[in-house]
Nucleic acid binder design. Structure first.
Lengths: 346, 346
DNA sequence: CGGTGCCCCGAAAACGTTTACGAGTCAACT
DNA sequence: AGTTGACTCGTAAACGTTTTCGGGGCACCG
């Protein structure tokens, strides 16, 4: 309620001096600064963000765009909450606030982003769930707004700042593991939309198969919604094949839950009659019986990485953060379970 | 990049007229308005939010505070994403944007909220996961910021605007169902923190037991984290009792997953040797085997209700929304499953 | 005693927008 | 013809802050 004006006249000081005192400028007497800070705390003064934004043209806030259409998430626990926690941990060091901008399910993501960007409500953006071609990347580069993407894309000539999970590594280790156990026909469950991780993951699979000199069979690639339902459906299709595979690799842990369910209905046990490897370890995946073989990472650390990489491309902070963080493949650690214990006799 | 000034001189018109034309004021010629809108679209003009905020003292945005410390969520799917979708649907009708404000796990929620409020970054707030005594409610009323809470609280004299789930109804129907099947010793799993829904749910349980003339046994009330792990632990304690109950009611669906797991380890089957009733139906709960008896609601509708009730207490919109929505118990629909099919011989 | 430099502060402009006020035009009515 | 009113628009103030500029002290040095 109280502004810098009232604070100034309460102290019999000009507003300029008050502003300088509050912002830690050097050219103000120590005693004066002490009085100002004391009075500010006493009267509960806090700077009006709009006035500050208008004057200095920035907002001290960064946006994190997510999509509130829940289906696209595909994560069993609150993936974003974990990541956000890490991002905030970094931003807090510089008094930057994080605003989550949820794109409504019925709105075009690029248009929504455009609106948010042109409103100048944030100094930088984090976008996630990048698609194979993603207009948001061109939009942000054109607007010259610092940003970082969680996920690669073919847009922007792949020269924009991003961090992405190690889908190739996961695909390779999953295939290696299955091949070592004698599997040759391995199905892969991918998301049905054009989110880029599906393509990257598939490339990783193809590379691994070629390395093992196994012919790639496109009919073993099955796409479905990145949900339990999707995993159920994928498994259903797999089991109905004339020449069914003996193993299944899934790119979302939610899919694994559906897969377990469908296998159970068929009287099969994961890791006994059929091998399943999931993607990300999550509290829920941990409760699958038998334990799901999957891959682990720290959501919070990922958030910290995102935050630091973002700061590295924001002019006011760029010098304190190494530029090397701007592009990064985020490693994931294998968590061996029982779901792929099945050794194919062959 | 382009401001109203440039737009005005490009049209040889005063900036006042441009502003009036853009804001739909009546005192501007139709032809002039057409030209302004056309030029604005062509040059990609969009109002600087900071300038507008500063002038008219509001932000055309409402905040939704959540806690990014993931543990408190207790929901298996992305609960908030569903609710947010509904809220946005309502707000969009009035050109209001929604900002999600995630309180960092290591920061005091009230202090965080205080910061956000005094920055005047939002015109109104939605808070969730209210605690039994919740300083945020007093804070918001004192700041005279319109708000609505998802959840009741004893703070604020219970005269603040809220919407809350029908925990009493759920508790009563759960107990009714179990008693009708002959159960007399019924355990209840509650969250271990002081989130208010735990207390309300417990009151509902007590009332229902009294109605059935069953003595309330405090040792059957078990508190744990609102996670799968918590449900596992609760079930573990229940099974270890000297005089174990025959049924368990849980206030989070995530707990049910842990309960199933622990029962399985004990060689027991839900709905056969032991009755389990969960709380909210979710995509994941649907995949439990046997089907979990739980309660259903539409997250999106809840969000719509929240949004409308919020608008009802925001001065600029209060007239278009009925005041009756301001306090509301949100109904939930019973979804019968097999997890409580077990009829106790008694 | 004049010049120089430093420390601290006040005055005022500027950010982009909205809006109160008044003025100009023109038609219509008395 | 004078008055009224409707319609349209330009002028300028205001929102709260930051920041540039310059000036008044004061000490120090020549």
């Amino acid at each position: 309620m109280i502004g810098i004006k009232r604070l100034a006249e309460h102290l019999n000081i000009s507003i300029g001096t008050v502003s300088r005192a509050l912002n830690g400028r050097p050219d103000v007497n120590d005693e004066t600064r002490r009085r100002v800070l004391e009075a500010a705390a006493e009267l509960g003064y806090v700077a009006n963000q709009s006035g500050r934004n208008l004057r200095q043209g920035n907002t001290n806030a960064v946006g994190f765009m997510i999509e509130s259409g829940a289906d696209t998430a595909g994560n069993s626990d609150n993936f974003f909450l974990g990541v956000i926690d890490g991002v905030q941990h970094v931003l807090a060091r510089h008094d930057l606030d994080l605003l989550v901008l949820p794109c409504p399910g019925d709105e075009n993501p690029s248009q929504y982003l455009q609106r948010m960007v042109s409103r100048r409500a944030v100094d930088a953006m984090i976008i996630s769930a990048t698609h194979r071609v993603d207009a948001r990347i061109d939009l942000l580069t054109k607007a010259r707004l610092p940003f970082i993407a969680l996920g690669r894309s073919t847009s922007g000539g792949n020269v924009y700042p991003w961090i992405d999970l190690d889908f190739e590594g996961v695909a390779n280790r999953a295939i290696d593991r299955l091949v070592a156990k004698g599997h040759r026909r391995i199905a892969v469950g991918l998301p049905s939309n054009d989110i880029n991780l599906g393509f990257i993951f598939l490339d990783g699979i193809k590379g691994a198969l070629k390395r093992h000199k196994i012919r790639f069979d496109p009919s073993l690639i099955i796409r479905a919604a990145s949900t339990e339902q999707g995993g159920y459906q994928i498994t259903h299709e797999v089991l109905a094949m004339k020449d069914p595979p003996t193993a299944l690799v899934l790119v979302y842990e939610l899919m694994a839950i559906g897969a377990y369910r469908r296998l159970g209905e068929a009287g099969m046990t994961p890791g006994k009659d059929f091998a399943v490897i999931g993607f990300r370890e999550s509290p829920l995946a941990k409760f699958l019986q038998p334990a799901l073989t999957c891959f682990r990472m720290s959501l919070r650390d990922l958030g910290i990485g995102l935050g630091e990489s973002l700061l590295a491309v924001m002019p006011p902070y760029a010098d304190t953060y190494p530029q090397g963080l701007v592009n990064k493949i985020w490693p994931m650690e294998l968590v061996p379970g029982e779901s792929d214990a099945f050794t194919r006799k062959g």
